[in-house]
Amino acid sequence: MTEPVDHPAARALAERHRLRIWEAIPWLLALGFFFAFPKHLGFGTELLVTVLFAISLDLVLGYAGIVTLGQAAFFGAGAYTVGILAKQGIWHEPITGLLLAALVAAAVGFGSGLVLLRTQGLTLLMLTLCTMALLEEAANLAHDYTGGFDGLDSLPIAPLFGRFEFNPLYPTTQYLYVLAVLFVCFVFVRMLVYSPFGQSLRGIRENMLRMHAVGAPVRGRLVLCYTLSAAIAGVAGGIWAQANAYVNLGTLGLDRAATVLIILVLGGHGRLYGAFIGAVAYISLSHFLARIYPTAWQLGLGLLLVVIALFARNGILGIAAALRRPAHRAAS
């Protein structure tokens, strides 16, 4: 047995995954919101679902470096799984319903990933877009099951644990349920990104050719990552359908895919908490501005994106890190 190496870099890597105290803040805030704003739990639920969706994107985009415009395909797959099963009277139980949503979305992710991830760059971007558009068209066509353009509403979702009703007017159950599911998924993703698997995803993001040259089965890793991300996006879609008791074509559209991309990049991708920051910033702003001045909102959002792309490539958390770094260097 050799001695462990005692070096600051080794220690930093060995302790990277440790929980920091500040990591409790988002969860405390989320709980605080529940008690402080009982009238705005619908808004809060939407926010939490968005965070979950953005986290699913962070896994593929932020960690594995797959630039996709089609993440809503999986959100929609999950949402329609819940919607169709409930509407057809096949399945109403929410938690197992989410598992089914995850399963279906994962299957879509696995199937499409297996073929799409052979390509890169522009072609990959196009194909993610096409896959999502194809799914949207398919959902539109199968209106006997999906309700077509109008979607499915008044979904009969069974009470949680057989006791807690999903009341659309007082979404207390929804809020806590979504928060719990978000927490579980977040813990899973956090574990993933700090694992050796997550480290190899970063490697693929940074230099795919080198990953081949160290003997990594790059495509297999990417497909696996894509599938897991799809499953989580499916959970987000499924829970969105349950919480709102409806599902429509919008869950599958370019709008939703672009929005989640914007949210993630706004917060900072590849940083785990970027999804939280981005979702809070975006959803709050859009909640107040987009209703009143939709056009000005779009203009401002466009400007913001241009500025981020040109000057602040790592989002809000990236700016924060950049501000912190010179201070660190001066200190050390």
Binding site: L13, R16, H17, L192, S195, P196, S200, V214, A216
Partner: peptide
């Protein structure tokens, strides 16, 4: 990690 076969592992921290 790739050489020793640690890279696929998901359920424990890299460190």
């Amino acid at each position: 990690a790739e050489r020793v076969g640690a890279a696929p592992s998901m359920f424990r921290p890299a460190g």
